[in-house]
C-alpha cells in the first residue's frame, strides 16, 4: 500500500532523473554541456549543477539547471555515471562550491557582537569573522561542522569527536 502511494507520488511529480542511459554530460569550454538522449533528445550547451542537499549528500541529488535556471532533471548519484563523467561533474561541483577544510581552531574571541576565529586550515592559518554564531555553525549529518563567515565563505571542521581537546572546547560553545 505504502509502496503504491510512494510510486504514485513519484509519478505525479514527474521529475526527470538523469542517468547514463538517458543523457550524456561533456566538457564544453570551461563548462559542462548536456545531451538528452532518446525521445526527448535536446542539447544544452551549458548546464549548471546545484546540490539539493549540500551538507548531507554533496555528490547525490544534484539538480541540473539550464541557463534560465529551469531544472532539466536531477542526478540521483553521480557515482552511477562512468568514471570520466563522474570526475567532470565532481570537478564542476567542487569549483562552484568552495569550502575550505579546517583542521583545528586556535582561538575564538567574542567582541562587539561578532566572533573572531583563528583557525588552522589545510592551506595554513586563516582568520575569519562570524556573525550570529547560532545560525552560522551547523553540525551535519556526518558529524562534520559547517561554518559560514560574514563574507559568505564556507569552512568545514572535522566532527567534534575528531577535534583536539582545545578546538572541541572552543567549538562546542557555538553548537
Amino acid at each position: 500500500m505504502d509502496i503504491n502511494r510512494e510510486k504514485e507520488l513519484l509519478e505525479a511529480a514527474g521529475i526527470v532523473y538523469l542517468t547514463c542511459a538517458n543523457c550524456r554530460f561533456e566538457k564544453k569550454g570551461d563548462f559542462v554541456s548536456l545531451d538528452l538522449l532518446g525521445n526527448e533528445a535536446k542539447n544544452y550547451s551549458r548546464v549548471n549543477l546545484h546540490r539539493l542537499f549540500p551538507f548531507d549528500r554533496p555528490y547525490s541529488y544534484i539538480s541540473v539547471l539550464d541557463s534560465d535556471s529551469q531544472e532539466i532533471g536531477i542526478i540521483a548519484e553521480i557515482g552511477d555515471f562512468d568514471e570520466e563523467t563522474c570526475e567532470l561533474l565532481k570537478h564542476e561541483l567542487d569549483r562552484k562550491y568552495y569550502v575550505c577544510d579546517l583542521i583545528s581552531v586556535s582561538s575564538v574571541k567574542d567582541r562587539f557582537g561578532f566572533s573572531y576565529w583563528k583557525v588552522q586550515s589545510t592551506a595554513g592559518e586563516i582568520t575569519f569573522t562570524i556573525r550570529d554564531t547560532h545560525n552560522s555553525l551547523r553540525e551535519n549529518i556526518d558529524g562534520k561542522i559547517s561554518i559560514s563567515d560574514i563574507d559568505g565563505n564556507r569552512y568545514t571542521l572535522p566532527p567534534l569527536a575528531k577535534l583536539d581537546k582545545k578546538s572541541r572546547r572552543l567549538v562546542e560553545l557555538y553548537l
Binding site: F31, K96, Y97, G152
Partner: peptide, 26 residues
C-alpha cells in the same frame, strides 16, 4: 555567484562561455 565563491565569466560572440577568474567570498 558560486557557493562560497564568485566568478567573472565572459560570453563570447561565437556562443562559447569561459571563466575569467574566481574569487573566495571575501
Amino acid at each position: 555567484n558560486g557557493i562560497g565563491c564568485i566568478f567573472i565569466e565572459a560570453k563570447m560572440k561565437d556562443g562559447s562561455e569561459q571563466v575569467i577568474c574566481r574569487g573566495s567570498g571575501s
